Simulated scan of single mutants.
Amino acid sequence: MTAPATAQQLADLVQQQQADEAARLEDATATEADAGADAALAAALTAALAAWIATFGSLAAAGAGVELAAYLAQVRADTDRATGGLGRRAGRVIERALPDAARLGARHATDFAHRASGRRQGIPGVGVSRDALDAARALAGTVREQLRLAGRLLSPHMVSATGWRGVVTALGAARRAVSIVRSAVAWSVHRAINDGVAQATAALGARGLWVSEPDACVRCLAYSGQLTDRDGRFPGGLSMDPASRTTRRAAIEGPPAHPNCRCRLVPWLDEWAHGRTALPDLLRAQALRSVAMGRGRPSESNAARIRAARYLLAQRGSIPDRLRRHAQSAVAAGHF
Rank of each mutant, 00 (worst) to 15 (best):
A140Q: 10
R148P: 01
R103I: 08
I252T: 13
T228E: 09
L265A: 10
G151C: 04
L279M: 06
G63M: 09
R182W: 03
R119G: 04
H114M: 12
W272Q: 06
S155D: 15
G65Y: 05
A173E: 14
S179T: 13
L209C: 04
W52P: 00
Y71P: 02
D131G: 03
A3V: 13
G141M: 06
T246R: 03
D321R: 14
R324F: 05
L288P: 00
P124V: 13
R96D: 13
T79L: 07
R207F: 05
S224F: 05
T162A: 09
P214T: 05
T247A: 12
A106I: 09
G127P: 04
N302K: 11
A327D: 09
G91P: 10
C261Y: 05
A332R: 15
A48G: 06
A136E: 11
G118R: 08
R316Q: 15
R81K: 13
N260K: 10
R88P: 01
T6M: 12
H274T: 14
A109W: 11
L86P: 03
G254W: 03
L49T: 09
A43V: 06
Q16C: 02
H274A: 10
L288Y: 12
R115E: 12
R295I: 07
R24I: 10
G118E: 12
A44R: 01
D229T: 03
A90N: 03
R137Q: 15
L323D: 15
L154T: 10
V143C: 01
Q16G: 08
L238I: 09
P298A: 09
P259A: 10
A60N: 14
G151K: 03
L104Q: 11
R249E: 15
A69C: 03
L49K: 09
V185E: 08
T2A: 13
E26T: 07
A174N: 05
E32D: 10
R219L: 13
L323F: 09
E32K: 02
G294R: 02
V75D: 02
L221C: 04
G163P: 04
G275Y: 08
A51K: 10
R148W: 09
Q226W: 02
E213G: 01
A101Y: 12
R248L: 13
T247E: 13
W268P: 03
P255E: 12
W210C: 00
T6Y: 11
G151Q: 08
R152G: 00
L72N: 08
L41Y: 00
A73H: 07
R310D: 14
V93A: 02
V178H: 02
D131T: 15
T2G: 08
L171H: 01
G105W: 07
D131A: 12
V143W: 02
A30Y: 12
A47Q: 14
R324W: 07
G151N: 07
L323M: 11
